[in-house]
């Protein structure tokens, strides 16, 4: 079966569009498999997603259950990573925190990637005044460091997960728009686009059906590399008390409460910190590898 798929996918003369597409993806996968750091990243991300999905099955305790008689306990057989300042099991909280982080990251990407892509493609395709206006707006948002703008937005809205997602999304789309615009500019003048125009394809159809799909590989690389920055911004907002709010086991918020006893019970802060580090490093590894695989000239 495996060998059949391999032969079918790697066929030099694909007989259908689907076969060609599968062949493309399969070649990318083969290239990626040869990149050690990329595979390490992919494995960690898979584990992280698995943990987030199956948190209720894997958790040993209720993440919200307090046990004040057993505060700040060191790691033991009962509490694998110890307990926090309210006697809650850190291991279980870490698992549930993964859900918060994963949810925030997905929400941001789902909001940001299509919007940034659409704005960039429209600006690049139409050019002229549309381009100028859209790119000036992009520049304004690019003129702030991400965290500072996100902080100001959250302060203006109301601290919480939803505001944090919205704030990060508002600060994250400009680079996508820039990237999509640059990609669009390179293909706008190509013959195949001109051919579509001659056959009567509307501008919107050309943009959404023929230009946007071409931006997807670059978009994937960009999103993967951006993930770590989104995770860190979300955690920083939580740490500064502007993201997920205390009862929530969000990793940044966990560190924020644990920093008061960092000198005595350091593991309470260190464990969520290690989790953030691993996940964000994994996304950086994978993104770096994907860039090599999908865009050889960009390296």
């Amino acid at each position: 079966m495996n060998a059949t798929f391999r032969n079918w996918a790697l066929d030099e003369n694909p007989s259908s569009r689907r076969q060609a597409a599968w062949g493309n993806w399969y070649r990318i996968w083969l290239n990626l498999r040869g990149n050690a750091l990329g595979m390490i990243g992919l494995t960690i991300i898979a584990i992280f997603i698995g943990i987030a999905i199956f948190a209720p099955l894997l958790a040993t305790h209720d993440p919200a259950m307090q046990d004040l008689g057993n505060r700040l306990a060191a790691p033991s057989a009962l509490h694998w990573f110890g307990t926090d300042e309210l006697g809650r099991d850190i291991y279980s909280r870490l698992l549930y925190g993964g859900r918060v982080t994963l949810g925030m990251v997905i929400a941001v990407v789902v909001l940001v990637a299509p919007i940034g892509l659409a704005i960039g493609c429209i600006a690049g395709y139409f050019g002229g005044i549309v381009d100028t206006i859209l790119m000036r707006i992009t520049d304004i948002f690019l003129a702030f460091p991400r965290l500072v703008l996100a902080l100001a937005f959250v302060a203006a809205l109301k601290p919480g997960v939803e505001s944090a997602i919205l704030a990060i999304a508002l600060t994250a789309w400009p680079p996508y728009a820039r990237m999509a615009r640059a990609e669009t500019l390179t293909v706008r003048g190509s013959d195949f686009i001109a051919a579509y125009r001659l056959t009567g394809g509307s501008s919107w159809r050309i943009i959404f059906r023929h230009i946007m799909p071409l931006c997807v590989p670059t978009l994937i690389v960009r999103v993967t590399l951006d993930m770590s920055s989104i995770i860190i911004t979300a955690a920083s907002l939580g740490f500064l008390g502007m993201g997920a709010q205390p009862p929530s086991p969000e990793w940044g918020a966990m560190i924020a409460t644990a920093k008061r006893f960092i000198f005595e019970q350091w593991w309470v802060a260190a464990i969520p910190g290690i989790a953030i580090f691993c996940v964000s490093l994994a996304f950086n590894f994978l993104g770096d590898a994907l860039r090599d695989v999908l865009d050889p000239k960009g390296n």
Partner: peptide, 14 residues
């Protein structure tokens, strides 16, 4: 890449 993956507040606390 590690330097870009650690939140600055975590490094500071450590």
């Amino acid at each position: 890449l590690a330097g870009h993956s650690v939140p600055v507040f975590m490094l500071s606390l450590i």
